[in-house]
Amino acid sequence: MTKLRLLVLGGVAASLLATGCVLTSAQILVKFAFPPPNPLVVNVASGASSVSGLYIDLNTESDYADNKDKLKDIADLAVLGDVTNTGTGAIGVEVWLTKTNSGTLTADQVRAQGAQLWGPFNLAAGATKRIGWDESAGLFKAGKQVLIDEVKGDGQFSLYLIGPGTGAYQFQVKDGYLVLVIGAGL
């Protein structure tokens, strides 16, 4: 009986070891408030209109800085906040990402130089809607991988919130957040 128990325990230990150091990992929430101004106001007349970038330095968040060297993966992420369409037509809000502190760009430059991270979040004229976490998680695009690379890299990048195409639109985002759930070794 003792031999049998030892064999079972050995099997458990071997099975766990075969999975690597996964036993000591955790899913840690990192939240980053959009930089001022709050609300963020976007007013675009055409593709040549300027859009201010939101420079994100995740290193200023202790949950990220404390776990950066142990970061293995992104388990979940979301863009959150209250969006109001202050224009006269329906819009689909998109979030684009550039890998640097690229400052102010035109909407056309954002599309040329960046990667679409998220959206479109559709909103009728005059409507205000809170972006739910579940809905937000489902709106990520191919740029998600660029974000993951940046989060695993220097943690510094810029986000741009723009509307569809090259037409005129305006909207504002109140209490915007970027939320990440990082998979980290402990």
Binding site: K31, A78, R130, W133, D175, V179
Partner: peptide, 25 residues
């Protein structure tokens, strides 16, 4: 539930389904 500023957001906890085999003494 996570509170950000004055707003509380809720994330679906998810479901896990599993099938497999146990060995018990």
């Amino acid at each position: 539930s996570v509170t950000l500023g004055a707003v509380t957001y809720e994330r679906d906890g998810g479901d896990v389904t599993a099938f497999g085999l146990n060995a018990r003494l």
